[in-house]
Nucleic acid binder design. Structure first.
Length: 557
RNA sequence: GCUCCUGUAGCUCAGCCUGGAUAGAGCACUAGCCUUCUAAGCUAGGGGUCGCAGGUUCAAAUCCUGUCGGGAGCGCCA
């Protein structure tokens, strides 16, 4: 539709296609038309009053309008276009009646790494933002027809695991890990001897001491299994679990040799192997712009292993135009840049990275927002949040005497709450807000779907494929337009790796449907055949859109 | 001290990339709407120095500079 207006303007102005496309905008309200062309730019080149230009253009254009455009009007310096609603509605409904409306067949191979939380405890709500964003990106890219591999990098070589190993008693369960971790953290901070013990244990592990390796494995297995279970309640699954311990020593020698050749690797005063990054932008961001690859005792650090791991992932995509994506917290921005600059030295690209800001907890006394902390036990566990939300969903269902799956509602509420904000904004977690299912929430979206389903269900027997397009009212037009925006929104979300666009879109779509639902009776109306198709189009679009966030729909709730 | 992100209604957020018409939602508040398809809904209303100060521009929430508040980071944790 926009193309038609663009080509019309190309013929009648001296502007280029790209320029016109940039200038055209959507007017602030419906009475002003469907598209607008501000004449300020033309005013400059023609050295004429923009109001006059708009007037003149509207006169010229009105004489020979294509059938898709019903009217052109000038309003001040703006030229407003009104499209033929029936033609638009038919075009969009034809597309959206397709079950897989919006999907594509891009066919690229994509590797994505997300979650990768320390396997030291049950994940908290803050860290779950990583998984929920990552999973949504996976779904978006799959929907567009890509072959997506999901990887979870298990940090099983860590001080945290060593600490857990010290606190671990045979028979401890996943649910004991958090308390173990909190207790041992406290002890370590009070007793520096323990710290030494931890490093000794870690060293034993790295030198493959059998007993230590077995102990670490036992703990990590419990944790990974526990985390997997929780994520699977959220429909979040992984194709590969890549263990950091696999990269101890692997390629490390080779990589260090390659770094040596760049002339940027050196031993510092304290015997650490360090990569000089003074030639990069990092020089402004660190007191000393270096990247430490190995401890003074010669053992490799996580960065070195991460580089090996990343190179391995990059190599999998060699020669394809696939994408390599990683989801990381904002605390890893600088670290990731260090990795990227290091890889650059070796001639490798680095993954596309999505950083997200933390979920903050409101302190009940000071009112200040604070980061969640596993170590201090100041956190909301994802599992507790999940259970609490199910409870609320169950009681809401009971209250209304309706049906619906409380688990699906809880997952929808939580995912939507995690996705609706822009990635680089902090989320302020509050129970009150999270457990409210009205308005801008996951359950509202699911409810809108159920309403649409309810209409369609009543019509089981008399469904026809034919429909007449009547005069289209305001709420119908708004809904049609929103449905038509879906592919564009999806494309942008996939390019910018930003699921919040999908969340915001879904809300607008549902809201528009509810307005339509209220103002326009479907069943038994004169416009029944058309409105039914519109409802079906909406339902397809919302289902697909919610699917991109991993939110399931229900026919009743 | 330096670097990145962020600041829009009482609260939670869109809009900023790509500058344009009266700055949009949700929650909360006020007043309505269930003998029509599910009231987890809809309609109407009050509520805004778009942190602050400069600058660029015919035009700034949007771009630039500075400044203040919040979050994150800045060598042997991952």
């Amino acid at each position: 539709m926009k193309d038609i207006i663009v080509s019309l303007l190309i013929k009648n102005t001296k502007l280029q296609k790209a320029e016109i496309e940039k200038i055209i905008e959507i007017p602030p309200n419906y009475e002003m038309g469907d598209y607008a062309f501000p004449c300020f730019t033309l005013s400059k080149t023609l050295k004429k009053n923009p109001v006059e230009i708009a007037l003149e253009l509207s006169r010229v254009l009105s004489k020979k309008l294509p059938k898709e455009i019903s009217k052109v009007e000038n309003k001040g310096p703006y030229l407003n276009f009104f499209i033929e609603r029936k033609i638009l509605a038919k075009e969009i409904i034809t597309q959206a009646l397709n079950e897989s409306y919006g999907s594509e067949k891009q066919g690229n191979k994509i590797i994505i790494e997300h979650t990768s939380v320390n396997p030291n405890a049950s994940p908290h709500v803050g860290r779950s933002r990583n998984s929920i964003i990552g999973d949504s990106i996976v779904r978006i890219l799959k929907f567009l027809g890509n072959k997506v591999e999901t990887h979870y990098y298990v940090n099983d070589v860590s001080k945290q695991i060593a600490m857990l190993a010290l606190a671990y008693k045979k028979g401890d369960k996943f649910s004991d890990m958090l308390n173990n971790y909190i207790k041992i953290s406290k002890k370590v901070s009070e007793n520096s001897k323990l710290e030494k013990e931890i490093f000794e244990l870690l060293e034993k592990f790295e030198s493959k001491d059998k007993k230590t390796v077995a102990l670490f494995k036992e703990i990590v297995d419990i944790c990974v299994k526990g985390q997997k279970e929780i994520f699977s309640k959220f429909g979040i699954e992984f194709d590969y679990f890549d263990y950091e311990s696999e990269y101890v020593g692997k390629y490390s020698e080779d990589i260090l040799k390659k770094f040596e050749k760049t002339g940027k690797l050196f031993k510092d005063d304290e015997g650490r192997l360090v990569l000089d990054l003074a030639h990069t932008p990092i020089t402004r961001k660190m007191k000393a712009p270096v990247f430490v690859l190995a401890r003074s005792n010669g053992t490799g650090l996580y960065g070195l292993r991460d580089i090996s791991y990343t190179i391995e992932k990059m190599n999998k995509l060699k020669g394809t135009n696939g994408r390599n994506i990683i989801i990381l917290g904002e605390d890893q921005k600088l670290y990731f840049e260090q990795i990227a600059e290091s890889l650059k030295l070796l001639g490798y690209n680095s993954p596309e990275v999505v950083h997200y800001s933390f979920v903050l907890l409101q302190d009940s006394e000071t009112g200040k927002a604070k980061k969640m902390s596993t170590r201090r036990g100041e956190l909301v566990l994802l599992e507790d949040f999940y259970n609490e939300t199910i409870k609320r969903a169950t009681s809401e269902i009971k209250k209304r005497e309706t049906k619906g799956d409380p688990k699906k509602i809880a997952v929808g509420a939580i995912k939507y709450a995690m996705l609706r904000n822009d990635n680089d904004k902090n989320i302020i977690f509050s129970w009150e807000h999270s457990l409210n299912f009205e308005g801008d929430s996951g359950p509202y979206l699911q409810y809108s779907y159920a309403r649409a389903s309810s209409i369609l269900k009543k019509l089981k027997n008399k469904r026809t494929s034919k429909y007449d397009i009547p005069k289209i009212n305001e709420s119908e037009l708004k809904l049609v337009k929103l449905i038509s925006n879906f592919p564009e929104t999806l494309k942008k979300a996939s390019q910018t790796l930003n699921p919040s666009l999908i969340a915001n879109y879904s809300f607008q779509l549902a809201q528009s449907f509810n307005e339509f639902y209220h103002s326009s009776q479907v069943l038994g109306s004169e416009e029944e055949t058309f409105r039914l198709k519109l409802v079906e189009s909406f339902r397809n679009t919302l289902r697909n859109s919610l699917g991109l966030m991993g939110i399931e729909v229900m026919d009743e709730m």
